[in-house]
Amino acid sequence: MTLVEVRELHKQFVLRKGLFGKVSRVNAVSDVSLNVVQGEVLALVGESGSGKSTLGRLVARLDTPTAGEILYNGANVASLNARQLFAFRRHVQMIFQDPYASLNPHMRVRDMLAEPLQIHGLARGRNAIGARIEQLMGAVGLSSTLASRFPHEFSGGQRQRLSIARALAVEPEFIVADEAVSALDVSTQAQVVNLLSDLKRKLRLTVLFISHNLAIVQNVADRVAVLYLGRILEVAPTEDLFAQARHPYTQALLGAIPVPDPTARRKRIVLKGEIPSPMRPPSGCVFRTRCPHALADCARIVPPLRPVGAGRLAACIRDDLMSGSAPQAIASTTSSRAIP
């Protein structure tokens, strides 16, 4: 069952320099269509500047889309009235990247966790609220004796646990985790990822997991959507994607995962240059400027996201690459290079 359906979503930011200055537009999210199935973990991957976070914020209705629809349980999130939006807030929660910015530095843990309960009237009275706070802190593996402390007295990992506890306070069914572990130490990352996975299973959550860390994505996600310059280039079940990426960009991304074996030799695509400016994206296919397989047509045609196998979608006009019959041919083109 589809929980969230994103349809042809656009988000454009307008930047203006001064009162009469030049207006520039940034297309952070362009024509994105995506489904999130109830109970799954859908990962959103891409480089920084690819629009992952913007898409997450749009789905959590922290920003409003420029065009397109986000249907949550069939209702368009952008056109909710105040009362419906308030109800929606209980269902959808967000976990932010930077645990040092996402907790109010002037609020004690107790007040921070009590707030959502008070806002939504989920617990009344000192004792009920206290019991619920204790339960929430326990759920994320923190002792409730720490409830009277301020955020600055906690480590990054603990702070992220608090952030998760706050999100869980309203008993949401859908969580947008925006780079929820990327600001943490590697050892802490694993713990927090495991915590999220456990909670996901216990509380039957649906998760939009935004990350640039493919190793973590491979472990937690059921499906993966690859974003580049605000557009989705490929969507596939995690196993299939990691076994055989179809889109050249996805192949390049996978090739960039470090392998903990210095003697390993593998063929991979090494992308040249930087991700183009979202203010002036390339015509046609956004990836063509860095694609080793680009044709003349790629500059003219914006490739639609189309089925390229069971449960898989990709946005590329090259049928020969998308068929999946000759995946190795891709990795051995001139722009690929074996790691010495």
């Binding site: 930077d98 910015a101 109010n104 806002i119």
Partner: peptide, 26 residues
């Protein structure tokens, strides 16, 4: 635009609550 203000918005906090409980103390 800090994340903790976004988080409060995401929790459904009213404008007045955000202004006085989240922004004012800073």
């Amino acid at each position: 635009h800090m994340d903790f203000v976004s988080a409060a918005r995401g929790l459904g906090a009213s404008r007045v609550r955000i202004m006085f409980r989240h922004i004012w103390p800073s």
